[in-house]
Amino acid sequence: MTTGKGRVPGQLMSVEVASEYIRSGRVMCIAGDERALRKLPRGRWIGGTICYFISADGGVTSQDEVFVDLLPADCGEPKLRFYDVSTISKLCIDGPDNGFSLVVMPAFAPIHLQFAQHAPNYEDMYMKPLVGWVAGVHMSELGTLTPKAVFGPTGEFSELNAVAIHVPLPETRSASVAIVNLFQPGEGAVIRFPRSGFNASDVLIDNQPHNLARYLSESGINIQLPLVADYCGAHINVAIRAADAQKGEVDFYGPVFEGVDYRFANPVSSYADAFREMAPKEAVPAAFSCNCILNYLYGNLEGHSTGTLYGPVTFGEIAYQLVNQTLVYLRVD
């Protein structure tokens, strides 16, 4: 990786090398295990905790190395900011007129839930490119460690607040957000929810009232497959966290929205093959990318190459709004 203006894909690297980049003054987003991130010096970076990555060598778990995305060297002066639940709704209006914003927020925190449910209605949402990810922890440390967002300028770790970097670009350049979603809506029933939220019980299935948890049990649907909604051609997933037929309740990793038609996705035989096939074949590497922990786990991506989009494997991906089981990337042309 160079420190010049040339754009290179993000890379997994040692704490020592990452520290050199920070000291060189480059603007960056860093993902890593909390213990590794705490060794980094202060500087112009934001980050979050996670120890799963997609690298040039494929999926990898590392609690020693950190993943560094160097943001474009020819950008204007970036603004690095903290957001709490009362200010996160201003995330989009704080973005530059030409450029992009990158946000990291801790999983399971109120700000994560607030963003998940309300981001589509934030002021200026969709008007300017917004990407980001949700920080997590090693699966074996769930419940003992909390996911955290990190604010590089002060070295502060937060399990409550989000951090963002707003990056202005010269007029000759532009940024855009894209996703790679392996999942296509299947031919099964159309599911509609009576209200938005992270859980559901009674829903409309092909316009007939039904309990969703019992429907899943009776139909033998693989709950590793997400619900997929069609937003004017964009397939957006909602992943299922748990389904309890006895209680009649289903929990989701992201919110379902009232008034939207969902279908369960078709199965995918090989996640790694599908990612390699669907990943963009562009000469210029993405400025940022992240993929979902569920794809990593369900698709057994550890040790398998998924193409040329590298980045952290996260507890939630942000492509404007929160998405699930999706690869998100940012292009800067």
Binding site: Y126, P129, A178
Partner: peptide, 9 residues
Amino acid sequence: LGLQLLLAR
């Protein structure tokens, strides 16, 4: 993607 999501909303 931005236009798809915006138009849907």
